[in-house]
Design a protein around this nucleic acid. Structure first.
Lengths: 372, 372
DNA sequence: CTGAAAGCGCTTACAG
DNA sequence: CTGAAAGCGCTTACAG
């Protein structure tokens, strides 16, 4: 059997000649560069038949199949998924577009999305935008060209008409190439109800925190969080306001302090809030980051948690359970958001908006106010 | 201008007829389904010329270019990156293969890798193996077929000959299709020195912790961590042993307790360690997770940190700075590991093993022993 | 600067 | 079950 395994390849075989043409003079012919035609030739069958053994639906005679497989093995053949994809076969990709990978949201959400992508034979592409519009639109363009099957647009985003128009444009562009766009971790876009959103209930999460504090007897409850501009910030602040109103509690402007999502910003804002004449006895923070900032401020001001000050966070980031005291917070169903979003994007599940409920995690940073 | 923008498409145009052939009867012809030939036809040029305006290197007359661009715009043309990739152009992908996305390592490493992938015009693919061999090898096979340019094999892995053989096989298989494999966050594979590893110095990291404790006056220093089987566990344990020996300190077997990487396991192991007759005055933990378990055990046993017990962690996960007391720990350069690995995988940087140094983060969980 | 032709590697009706 | 042919959509020498 000329050219079989173990024999030294010679230039006399057509396969080798072909490979030499491609590979130039970099030593022995590369194994992986054989194509379907090479395999077919070596097995003595047509490319069509060879193709059928690697993925064709119709049946191939067992002997033929064996010959082809043997030839493929000898040649180190690896089917070219790129070529295959051109005819609509092969794994498609689902893309995960996110502002940044750092943060509590990302890993769980991505893990959820990946699990369904994999289960459906797709690969997961992850790209960050860093909030850069140009980069974002370049990315969408690339994803269109690569014929991604679905794109998950993840996380809090700007809450303004410009954004809505932009994302609507993405959805249309993507639809042109039969790709779907689903929002996850942010609410539906006003004016583009056709774009599905898989989100969790930010408002209800914050509301649960307020309700718990009210139940404990607090009446002066402050809020720390970012202001307008991003969906998450607005929804959570709105959750606070709505809950305060529902509980017939005052929420004067000075009870709400703006803090970006970081420990330092949280600490600074908490210091202000706690320096008020009639300081609040409890704080609801937009995020655990900010809540931890509030812990620092309380410590700096000699306030004990929860005796002098109750604090509620949001996100249930790892380790906040081990703070002293353990942080009472709200846990969003990140993994589940990723799962549902991917399922919808892939058409496994009907394309309807989903609003998942977070869980309220009661720990030791909340207690009745000292005055009681 | 027949068929121009704004006019209703009719079946009389060849483009439309063609599209109807494809799209069947689902309403108006889809915009994105035009191909290069359609664009060329509409612009009155050859496909070759049209191709040149979208990516060809050679110059095209401005007027011609404008005509082609206009036609493309009218037809909603989106170049097919899959077809383009077949001829070697278009963005390649770099794949990130990891056991799980959950954990401190993942996000930063991925972010680092993504930044260089993007900078080099590549897309980042992320897949988890969940430690499943079958899934892992299926994944490598898929990546070969998709002609990934590089794969980053991330994180701690089994430290046995079977693994080494397996990963060597992957490297060879990948090399067949001109893809590189680089290990990151784990040491080189014995017996396969050609596979590049980008890692950080686990041993030195743990050693720094031990040295600090010795400097503070501790002599009975315990260690909590997983045992044999995974590279990270072995390296960190070895770092402890080496440092103890270097400092001429005893490290009898009972000072080393096995704990899986979780808070619960850490707590259980710490309880054992602290129940010894001559209990250690300090603990070095393989990870922050385990260190936090030790915090719990200390609290449960009424031991004050750092007065009665010093603790050093590893990983510098978010929020351990805000524990009470703040955790002294070791910070690995995760982002940098991702960056360097991707650079090497993409050939931007020479293919040599890299061993980055972690930083020692001194906080408040370490102090001289009470006995002093 | 532009076009005709061949090619990239695979798949899929259409005939046998 | 198998093959010849046409096709997927793009690119690239090779000529002009």
């Amino acid at each position: 059997m000329p050219g079989g395994p173990g024999t030294i390849p010679t230039m006399s075989s057509p396969d080798e000649a072909r490979r030499a043409r491609h590979g130039g003079s970099r030593g022995p012919a590369r194994v992986g560069s054989a194509n379907l035609r090479d395999v077919a030739a070596r097995a003595g069958v047509s490319p069509a038949t060879a193709s059928r053994v690697f993925g064709g639906s119709r049946s191939v005679h067992a002997d033929t199949r064996a010959k082809v497989l043997a030839a493929a093995d000898e040649l180190g053949y690896v089917v070219n998924g790129l070529a295959r994809a051109m005819t609509g076969r092969g794994p498609g990709t689902v893309a995960f577009v996110v502002r940044s990978m750092i943060g509590p949201t990302f890993a769980s959400l991505a893990a959820g999305a990946e699990s369904v992508a994999t289960a459906n034979g797709h690969l997961l592409l992850i790209s960050t935008t860093e909030g850069d519009r140009q980069r974002e639109s370049d990315l969408i363009a690339t994803l269109r060209e690569q014929r991604a099957r679905a794109v998950l647009y993840v996380g809090s985003t700007e809450s303004d008409p410009e954004f809505d128009a932009r994302v609507s444009g993405y959805a249309e562009d993507l639809a042109d190439v039969d790709a779907s766009l689903v929002l996850c971790g942010r609410p539906p876009v006003v004016g583009a109800p056709a774009i599905v959103s898989v989100d969790y209930d930010h408002r209800a999460g914050v509301g649960a925190g307020v309700d718990e504090l009210v139940r404990l007897g607090h009446t002066r409850i402050g809020y720390l969080g970012a202001g307008r501009g991003m969906t998450t910030a607005e929804l959570r602040l709105d959750g606070y306001r709505t809950a305060m109103t529902r509980n017939r509690l005052p929420h004067a402007k000075d009870l709400v302090r703006v803090a970006a999502n970081s420990e330092d910003a949280g600490e600074a804002a908490a210091r202000e809030l706690l320096s008020m004449a009639a300081r609040p006895t409890a704080i609801v923070a937009m995020t655990d980051n900010i809540a931890v900032g509030a812990y620092r401020a309380a410590r700096a001001l000699g306030l004990r948690i929860p005796d002098d000050l109750s604090i509620v966070g949001f996100d249930d980031v790892p380790f906040v359970a081990d703070l002293t005291p353990g942080l009472t917070t709200v846990r969003p169903p990140f993994y589940e958001v990723g799962v549902r979003a991917a399922r919808i994007a892939l058409g496994v599940e009907p394309a309807e908006n989903v609003l998942l409920q977070p869980s309220f995690i009661r720990r030791d940073s909340t207690a009745p106010p000292a005055e009681m």
